[in-house]
Design a binder for these strands. Structure first.
Length: 530
RNA sequence: GCUCCCGUCGUCCAGCGGCCUAGGACGCCGCCCUCUCAAGGCGGUAACGAGGGUUCAAAUCCCUUCGGGAGUACCA
């Protein structure tokens, strides 16, 4: 028995990590951390035509952003590398050759087209297209290329114990012999994946449910590879590190259910099937993503829902992983995010808001603004950064002052873009709707004149003093304070929705406030007249 | 078609034979608070897919059925 659990996250680098794969990575990582194990990040790029360098980099970047660290992998290194499958071809071929010599592989000379035609025939006759050696045509001619298939048992059953699903049994007669070596000599996923699991000492295979059906042949292969030291001989032959001597093969499996959209269909763009980085642009905290994804298909015994990384590690176990598919609920994610933002230290929050103000993450288009992270939104065309990069001392001070005003009214970091302009730009644009609804009301211009007068005469420029100046205006003008606050708010912030008025005014230079109120008076008169 | 997996509020999770007139969270609705929007507080809405068993007793065990999903590649 191996003393240390070893798990691997092994994505194919052909695209971007989405919530499903991140959740798989997370569960692997949690299991490793919860059991003092080793987390391996392996890249399965056996299909050169689909793998890209860009994709591989973005996957590593995503992990770094999420704070999931890997003990062994392409970036981390480790004793059982290389961790890119494409760099292990020699091993895979050596294994394939030895398997062939052992007589467990056989040639299938049919072309892809011939096989396809055969499958169609079978299906037309309501028969499962199962390839078995006994029904595979013999050699047609020496010069034909062939795939090498693994000969699986013709009958009997195999039972695999899955940590989340319990015992699952398959009948060998229903299992098709998998192609291990393509006709062009390349090895396939079934071989490479199994070989690397063994060579790297993986003890638990945790992956998506879509790979459950592949488990029988994988277990069968594990046995073949380890039985007579075949893998060890191959390892030695190509000069790769030997395995732990006391270790046999992966003994545990955990197949995670799929993540679906709120419509119960396969994850769509609307429901988060985008690169995980897109969540960063949309203003989600990495710790929110980790927390929420951990709760998709799992929950701690005590029912807590807000858990940080350490708490997740302490509570995690496959025994509490759900078997049914989970719907990705952006609303709940967003609510979680809002809570975490509120929990952030104010200085910390200020730092985290900078990328949303300096142009690193420009705003999304309004039509997708209230929806899930989505590529279709794209950046807003004419948006100008509100602070320089890096921010000046003055900008930083303003931002720091703004944080307490906006912290409790944000669910996502990018929402700062809604509140910030009034505090950073010289030329304020008044929202037409607010002008009409608020400044157009009777008496708005009078309120603004009175507010201007009082604020100009003020000695202290503090929220308390500003409140002391503005509140009495309600009685003076014989109206409710709301009728006073709203016109001033629109004049000063450009919108009928803003952070608290007195604190907002305090944060701005007095002259700027007075100028804005003054400029709004004719606007109010016009709007009122119209 | 065949093989396998799954089935509790709209959604996530709890429940593992009696504590369930089914609990928590998000959402939604209402109220309170209030300078707007939030935040916060309080209350409410809403589910065991169906049918048979087993049992004194079933959301919990068994069977059937219906529904959903995955796989069925010289892709991983």
């Amino acid at each position: 028995m191996p003393s240390t659990p070893r798990v691997r996250f092994a994505p194919a680098p052909s695209g971007w990590l989405h919530v499903g794969s991140v959740r798989t990575a997370l569960f692997n990582w949690l299991h490793a951390r919860a059991n003092d194990g080793v987390a391996i990040f392996r890249i399965e790029d056996t299909d050169a035509s689909r793998a890209t360098e860009e994709s591989m980099d973005s996957m590593h970047d995503a992990m770094a952003w999420l704070g999931l660290d890997w003990d062994e992998g392409v970036r981390a290194g480790g004793a059982y590398g290389p961790y890119r499958q494409s760099e292990r071809k020699e091993l895979h071929r050596a294994v394939a050759r030895r398997l062939e010599e052992a007589g467990v592989l056989y040639r299938d000379e049919r072309t892809a087209e011939e096989l396809e035609a055969w499958r169609n025939e079978r299906r037309a006759a309501d028969l499962a297209p199962i390839v078995k050696r006994s029904t595979t045509p013999g050699p047609a001619g020496d010069d034909r290329t062939a795939t090498l298939r693994l000969q699986l048992p013709e009958e009997g059953t195999i039972t695999v114990t899955d940590l989340v699903r319990g015992d699952v049994t398959w009948d060998w007669s229903h299992e098709s012999d998998p192609v291990l070596v393509r006709s062009n000599g390349d090895v396939t996923y079934p071989l490479a994946n199994s070989v690397d699991d063994i060579a790297q000492g993986v003890t638990l295979v945790c992956r998506g449910e879509d790979l459950l059906s592949v488990t029988p042949r994988q277990v069968f292969l594990y046995d073949l590879l380890t039985r007579d030291g075949l893998i060890d001989d191959a390892l030695a032959e190509v000069g790769l590190p030997a395995r732990e001597p006391d270790w046999t093969r992966p003994t545990e499996f955990a197949h995670l259910s799929m993540i679906v959209g709120m419509d119960r269909k396969k994850l769509s763009k609307r429901h988060g099937s985008v690169s995980i980085q897109e969540f960063a642009r949309k203003g989600f905290l990495p710790e929110t993503i980790v927390n929420y994804l951990a709760l998709l298909g799992w929950g701690p015994e005590d029912g807590r829902e807000r858990l940080d990384r350490d708490e997740l590690v302490a509570a995690f176990g496959f025994d509490r992983v759900s078997r049914s598919a989970a719907a990705f609920d952006t609303d709940k994610l967003t609510a979680f995010n809002g809570e975490r933002i509120r929990d952030l230290d104010e200085d910390e929050l200020a730092d985290r808001l900078v990328p949303y103000l300096d142009g690193t993450y420009p705003p999304s288009n309004p039509d997708t603004e209230d929806d899930a992270p989505d590529h279709e939104g794209g950046p807003v065309a004419d948006w100008e950064p509100l602070v320089s990069s890096p921010p000046s001392a003055e900008e930083r001070a303003t931002l720091r002052g703004l944080v307490p005003l906006v912290q409790e009214r944000m669910q996502r970091l990018d929402e700062v873009q809604r509140y910030a302009p009034a505090f950073f730009v010289d030329e304020l644009t008044l929202e037409p709707a607010s002008v009409q609804k608020v400044l157009g009301k009777a008496g708005a211009a009078d309120v603004l004149r009175a507010a201007h007068r009082e604020l100009q005469a003020l000695d202290d420029w503090t929220a308390e003093a500003i409140e002391g100046a503005l509140r009495p205006l309600a009685d003076e003008l014989g109206i409710g304070f709301g009728k006073v606050a709203q016109p001033v708010r629109v004049a000063v912030t450009g919108s009928q929705v803003s952070p608290p008025l007195f604190e907002s005014i305090e944060l701005m230079p007095r002259q700027r406030v007075l100028d804005r109120i003054e400029a709004a008076i004719p606007v109010a008169e016009d709007a009122g007249a119209g």
